[in-house]
Lab assay of single mutants.
Amino acid sequence: MATKAVCVLKGDGPVQGIINFEQKESNGPVKVWGSIKGLTEGLHGFHVHEFGDNTAGCTSAGPHFNPLSRKHGGPKDEERHVGDLGNVTADKDGVADVSIEDSVISLSGDHCIIGRTLVVHEKADDLGKGGNEESTKTGNAGSRLACGVIGIAQ
């Protein structure tokens, strides 16, 4: 089992970053940390998408990683996509320092995120509470600013 993974985020604009993942036990939580720069100040949706395909930019990554066919939600919700990591918060300089621990994603097994795409979005994720159909699919997080395929790390 891989215990570490990394993702280099890039987009068409100024947004870029490096996100690290570490899972010490196969059924334990995954620590997610790193930094994203070039964002507007505020909240930005942060999700693992189904495919590791960036051939047409971030759009070819498909929908959120959702092997259990659930509705979109927040990272602490029972009803959520596996890939729903909530929001990252950018400061006035456009930098989001990421520090998350998640017990639904994994670096092995059915919820493995390796080979899938991590995406940072234009807007805040409403965590499935926006009151419309799009909220239950995407959290109304808007366009995909930057993305990268999650790969095994040393």
Rank of each mutant, 00 (worst) to 15 (best):
V82W: 13
A96D: 13
A61Q: 06
I100N: 01
G109R: 04
G62P: 01
E41K: 15
V104F: 08
G62A: 12
G131K: 14
D93A: 12
G13S: 13
R80S: 06
D53F: 10
N54I: 10
P67S: 04
C112M: 11
G109C: 02
K137M: 12
N20D: 10
A61W: 08
Q16C: 05
L9Q: 01
I105M: 10
S106M: 00
S35Q: 15
E22M: 10
S35D: 09
H72A: 11
G109Y: 03
S69P: 05
D53P: 12
T136Y: 02
V15G: 05
D84C: 07
C147M: 08
D93H: 08
N87I: 07
H72Y: 05
G38L: 04
H64K: 15
H121I: 08
D110Y: 08
K31F: 06
G130R: 11
G34Q: 00
G34I: 01
A141V: 11
D126V: 06
N87V: 11
T55E: 06
H111T: 11
I19C: 04
D110T: 08
H64R: 09
H44E: 01
I105W: 03
G17R: 04
H47P: 00
S108M: 06
G28T: 03
D97G: 10
G131W: 08
R80E: 04
S35I: 15
D12Y: 15
E133V: 12
D93T: 10
L43I: 02
A124Y: 13
N54Y: 11
L127A: 09
V149S: 05
L85C: 00
V15R: 03
E79F: 15
G148F: 00
A96T: 06
V149R: 11
S103C: 14
G11I: 01
F21C: 03
S103G: 12
G83W: 15
D102W: 00
P75Q: 15
N27R: 14
E122C: 08
A124R: 10
P75V: 15
G86W: 11
D125I: 13
Q16E: 12
G74P: 15
E101A: 07
V82T: 08
R80P: 04
F21S: 07
E79K: 07
T117D: 03
P63F: 05
I19E: 00
A96L: 00
V95R: 09
V104Q: 05
L118W: 00
N140A: 10
E133I: 06
G109V: 04
I18V: 08
P14Q: 12
V8N: 07
T59K: 08
I150D: 00
F21E: 06
T89A: 13
F65Y: 12
W33D: 08
F21A: 03
I100E: 03
T55W: 07
K4H: 07
V120F: 08
G148E: 01
V95F: 12
E133P: 13
N54R: 14
D12K: 14
V8H: 13
G94M: 04
R116E: 01
L145W: 11
W33T: 15
G131A: 15
L145F: 13
F46W: 07
I19W: 01
N132G: 09
N66R: 05
G130Y: 06
I113W: 00
V98E: 02
K129G: 10
L127D: 14
V48F: 09
K123A: 09
T89W: 15
W33Y: 12
A153Q: 06
E22V: 07
R116M: 13
A56M: 05
L68M: 05
V104R: 11
R70Q: 12
G139F: 01
T89V: 06
G34A: 03
F21D: 03
P63E: 07
A124P: 12
W33V: 15
S106K: 09
E134Q: 11
G17S: 04
G131C: 03
T40Q: 08
T40H: 13
T117V: 15
I18N: 10
H47L: 15
G57S: 06
I19T: 00
A2D: 07
S69T: 09
G151D: 06
S106T: 08
E122T: 08
G142P: 00
E122R: 10
G139I: 04
V82P: 04
G142S: 04
T40I: 09
G62S: 08
G131E: 07
V82A: 12
E133G: 09
V15K: 01
V119H: 01
A141C: 15
K10V: 13
P63Q: 06
D91Y: 01
S26G: 12
K10N: 12
R80F: 06
A141M: 07
A61D: 09
H72S: 00
A96V: 13
I18M: 14
T136H: 11
S108E: 12
D110R: 13
I18E: 05
S135D: 06
G38D: 04
G115Q: 01
A5C: 04
P67F: 00
G115Y: 00
K129E: 06
L9Y: 02
G128W: 03
S108W: 12
F65P: 05
K10E: 13
D84R: 14
